[in-house]
Design a protein around this nucleic acid. Structure first.
Lengths: 374, 374
DNA sequence: ACTCAAGATTTGAACGATCAAACTTTTGAA
DNA sequence: TTCAAAAGTTTGATCGTTCAAATCTTGAGT
C-alpha cells in the first residue's frame, strides 16, 4: 500500500461501513461495544489517522490557531515570546489544536497576513501579542468578526471591557508589589524603581505595584517616591547609567526593583561598578539570561497565560473554536498572578571565593558527547 | 453571503467555468488574456482565496512543514532557535509554505509527534534542529521515507554522506578562524579558546578553527595550544571560573575566542574581575544579550540557513515538496559561512566616562506611548 | 405473535478544489 | 472552402471525511 490508509480501508478491515468507523472516532457512545472493539483493532492494525485536510474541509473549521513571530526579540527579555510559544503549542496540542506561525513587519502587514490566512480558511483564530494603546489590529479583528485573544490588556479605556476582545495578561501590579514587599521583609527600607518612560500600559502597571508596596509598608515622605523612581528606555546601558547616577547621589538606597530583566541587569552592573554588589535587585520576566546570572525576578507563569488564552478561545471544554458572543461577562479575560523567584546572584566583580573551577585544560581524551549547540 | 466565496462563485461572476478560474490561478498561461482579465476582476471583487484544505485534499500535499520548539532555550544563546524560526517562517511564506509548531520532551516523543503529523497528512516535511551524534530521529525519518532537513550536520561518520539526509549547517571552523585571525590582526599574539568538553561535533569544529588560525599565523610552540585550550560546560559560572584561573596563571594572554556567547560572557566577567576589562573577547552566536552588552561575536546568518534548508527541501524553484531521490550529490547540503560582528564592548566595571545618562527622574508628564513589553 | 420506538448501521450527498478527458472554437495551410 | 491541429473551455470524477436521511435490528409492551 503506497498511500495512507483511509477510513474506507479501516471499514473494510473491520467489516463495517465508513460511517461506523467515523462514529467510533467521533461519537463512540453510539456504537455497539462489540463493533467498536472490532473497529478499534482495525484502526490500530492499519495505523490509521484521519486525513486532517479532508476533515477540515467537511467540518468547515481548521482547528488551527496562528500567532505572529515578532521580527526581532528585544534584547534580554526577548525569549519571553519564545517561552510563551512553547507553552501555547504544548497546551494547544493537548486540545487537538495546531499552531501556525506567520511573520509581519508591522501591524498593517500583520492584518494583511491575518486576512490571507482567514480567507484561505487555514486558521480559525489568532493569538496576538504585544498589544499597545490604540492597537489597529484588535479593532480590525473585532470589526471583521475574526476570533482572537490577546496576550496583553487592551490599554485603551474603551477597549478594556469590550466583550468581543478576549485577553489574558500578567498582573504586573501584583508581581512588582510582591517583589517590593519581599525586599522590605528582608530589611530594605529605601527601594528604588527602574521602569520605562510611559504613562499608560505595562510599565506603569508595574510601577504602581512598587508604589503601593512602598506606601503601605514604608510610609515614605513626600517627594521620596519621585526621587526613587527612574524612567529609562529598555536598554542595558541606559539603565546602568541611570542607576549609577542614582546610587551615587543617594547612598541610603538599599534595594531596587525593575520593570524588566534588561533594566535589572543594567542595575546590577551599575551597582557592581560603584562597589555595591550586595545591593538586592529584582527584575521582571525571569529571562534565561537572568537565570544564568542569578538574578531574582518576577516570573510570568506562561503556562497559565497560554492555558488561559486557549480557554477563552475554545471554552473550558476544549471543544469548538466557535464564535462565543453572548457569554458571561467575566469570562472574557484572565489576569494571571506572577510569582517571585529568588536567586543567589552571581557576583560580577570579585572572584567567587567558594567555587571550584570545573575546567579541564586540553580536554583531549574526554569522549563525552556534549550538547551540539548550534 | 455568510460563507467564504468559492471557486464556483467566482466562475459565476466571471461567466466561465470552475476549471477556468482554477486555470487562471494555477496556469494562467493557457487562458486567453481577455478571459483571464475577466476572471481576475471577479476574484478581486469577491476577495476570493482558494480554500486551503480543499486544495490540499485534492493535491495530496499540505504545503506545510513542521518544526519542533525546544522545551527550554538554554541560557544566553537560547534565542538562536527563535531567530532561525523567524527566518524560516518568513522565507517559507514567500514560497507559499506554512510553518507548523510542535513540542516534544525528548527524541522518542518527537518521533511520535512526527508520526502523528505525517499520518494525518498534516505536514509534508520536517525541519530538525540540534542534531547530535547517533541521532535516532534522522535514522527513523530516513527509514520511514519522511522528507526532512536538519539544521546541524549529522556528526556520525556514516551519516555525513547519506544522500537521504539533507542538512544545512554553519561553518564553525571558518567562523572561529576568522574571529581568531581578526584578533591577531589587531595585535593579539597569545589567544585562548574557551569551548565545550566533547570530542565530536559543533564544539570541536569551532575549536579547530581557532587552532588553525593560531598555527598558521602565530606558529605556537608545542604544548602552547594545549595550555590555551579550555573546556567547560556551556554555563556562565563555569566559564567565568575557568577563565579567571587561566588569566591568573598566565598574564601574557591578550585575546580570547569562545564557542558561545554564554562562555564569552563568563569570560568577560572573569576578565573584568581580574582587572583586565580591556581584554578582547569574541563569542559565537551573536545573541541578543551579547548585542546588548557590546560583545563581538560570530553571527550565524540564519536567513541563509533558513533559505538553504527550504531550497534543499523544495528545490530552487520553490516548487513542489516532492521526494527528491536521484539528484546530484553535492546539492544535498549547505555549509553556510558565518561572519564576524565587531562591537565596542560595554565596560562592566568602571563608569563609562563618555556616556550621557538618558534617565529622567519621575517621568510623570511624559505621554510617549512606549513599547508595551510583556 | 404484532406493533412501534429506540438503537445500530448503512447509504447518498456535500465540503471546495484539481485532474483527466471531452468538447468547442480558433488558426493556418492546402 | 475545407479540414486537421492547436488553443481554449467545459464536464464528470475524485481526494477523504462528516452530515442527514434511510434502512435494518433489537426489544419491550400489549
Amino acid at each position: 500500500m503506497d498511500r495512507l490508509p483511509t477510513i474506507e480501508d479501516v471499514a473494510r478491515a473491520a467489516q463495517v461501513s465508513r460511517q461506523t468507523v467515523s462514529n467510533v472516532l467521533n461519537t463512540p457512545a453510539i456504537v455497539k461495544p462489540a463493533t467498536r472493539k472490532r473497529v478499534e483493532v482495525a484502526i490500530r492494525k492499519l495505523a490509521y489517522r484521519p486525513h486532517a485536510s479532508a476533515r477540515r474541509l467537511r467540518m468547515r473549521k481548521s482547528s488551527t490557531i496562528a500567532i505572529r513571530l515578532d521580527p526581532m526579540t528585544n534584547g534580554i527579555s526577548g525569549a519571553l515570546l519564545d517561552r510563551f510559544l512553547h507553552a501555547l503549542t504544548e497546551q494547544a496540542d493537548a486540545r487537538g489544536i495546531r499552531v501556525l506561525l506567520f511573520t509581519a513587519a508591522d501591524p498593517a502587514a500583520e492584518i494583511e497576513q491575518i486576512r490571507k490566512l482567514r480567507a484561505g480558511a487555514d486558521v480559525d483564530a489568532f493569538v496576538l501579542t504585544a498589544t499597545f494603546h490604540g492597537d489597529p489590529r484588535t479593532e480590525w479583528l473585532v470589526e471583521n468578526d475574526v476570533p482572537f485573544v490577546t496576550f496583553g490588556r487592551p490599554w485603551g479605556a474603551n477597549d478594556m471591557n469590550n466583550p468581543r476582545h478576549l485577553w489574558v495578561d500578567v498582573d504586573g501590579f501584583a508581581g512588582m508589589r510582591e517583589a517590593t514587599v519581599h525586599l522590605i521583609d528582608q530589611g530594605s527600607s529605601r527601594i528604588g524603581f527602574v521602569g520605562w518612560p510611559s504613562l499608560s500600559g505595562t510599565g506603569d502597571d508595574r510601577r504602581r505595584g512598587w508604589q503601593a508596596a512602598v506606601e503601605e509598608r514604608l510610609a515614605p515622605g513626600d517627594g521620596d517616591l519621585a526621587a526613587l523612581n527612574l524612567s529609562v528606555e529598555d536598554r542595558l546601558e541606559d539603565a546602568r547609567d541611570a542607576v549609577m547616577a542614582l546610587l551615587e547621589s543617594d547612598d541610603r538606597i538599599d534595594g531596587l526593583v525593575c520593570a524588566s530583566d534588561t533594566l535589572a541587569l543594567g542595575a546590577m552592573i551599575a551597582a557592581a561598578s560603584v562597589g555595591r554588589s550586595e545591593l538586592p535587585i529584582i527584575g521582571f520576566d525571569n529571562s534565561p539570561v537572568g537565570q544564568a546570572i542569578g538574578l531574582s525576578s518576577v516570573d510570568q507563569t506562561l503556562d497559565e497565560v497560554a492555558g488561559g488564552a486557549l480557554e477563552l478561545l475554545l471554552g473550558e471544554t476544549g471543544g469548538d473554536l466557535v464564535h462565543r458572543d453572548a457569554d458571561a461577562g467575566d469570562t472574557r479575560h484572565r489576569l494571571i498572578t506572577p510569582h517571585l523567584v529568588i536567586r543567589q546572584p552571581l557576583r560580577l566583580l570579585a572572584p567567587d571565593a567558594g567555587s571550584t573551577p570545573t575546567a579541564t585544560k586540553n580536554a583531549v581524551g574526554n569522549h563525552k558527547d556534549g550538547k551540539e549547540s548550534q
